[in-house]
């Protein structure tokens, strides 16, 4: 995001009161440094994609973070191909064809990753189901102990004129 747009936005948000962009007078005369890359927008795409690709020789780093020669080569490949107009998906396909799914930090959705991608949802359902059962049984207990009949029986018991034991249910601590 360009800096000026961001600042405009921040001003609007009034997050930082009165932060106005003023040209830096002291440094204004100095010549401006050149960006490292000719096309920052492209570089942002390269970096974005590189963060999702795993460097094969490093312990566990993306090709964006690693300084390993292979990571540099692959980053160059990504840049070259994006610059040539290929889409992110095409670049990913290119790398997967050579290095396999291992290069992807986001594994593709397929038979062998079904459990990985659906696992959390399954766990959530299982947890919710378990919770529902637990709560239902608890509520039943609560309802039983608090029911009007129960109270009446308790009063009768206390008065000493209960004819029949109320229930065979074991008391819960």
């Amino acid at each position: 995001m360009p800096a000026d747009r961001f600042l405009r936005a921040l001003r609007g948000a009034a997050f930082i009161g009165g932060c106005l962009l003023v040209a830096a007078a002291f440094a204004a005369d100095a010549p401006t440094a050149k960006p490292l890359v000719a096309d920052p927008a492209l570089e942002a795409r390269v970096l974005d994609l590189s963060h999702k690709l795993r460097c094969l020789v490093c312990q566990n780093q993306s090709i964006a973070e690693s300084h390993a020669p292979l990571a540099v080569d692959l980053r160059d490949q990504v840049r070259e191909q994006l610059a040539a107009g290929r889409s992110e998906n095409e670049v990913v396909d290119y790398l997967v064809a050579r290095y396999g799914d291992f290069v992807l930090y986001a594994p593709p959705f397929k038979a062998t990753t079904l459990l990985l991608w659906l696992g959390p949802a399954a766990l959530l359902l299982a947890g919710a189901g378990w919770l529902a059962i637990r709560l239902r049984s608890r509520e039943r207990e609560a309802a039983v102990t608090l029911s009007e009949a129960e109270h009446r029986r308790a009063r009768e018991l206390l008065a000493g004129n209960a004819a029949v034991p109320p229930s065979s249910k074991e008391p819960r601590s």
């Binding site: 795993r54 396999g100 291992f102 290069v103 594994p107 990985l116």
Partner: peptide
Amino acid sequence: GKLSVGPPY
């Protein structure tokens, strides 16, 4: 097979 599970996941 081998795969990586990283930040996007």
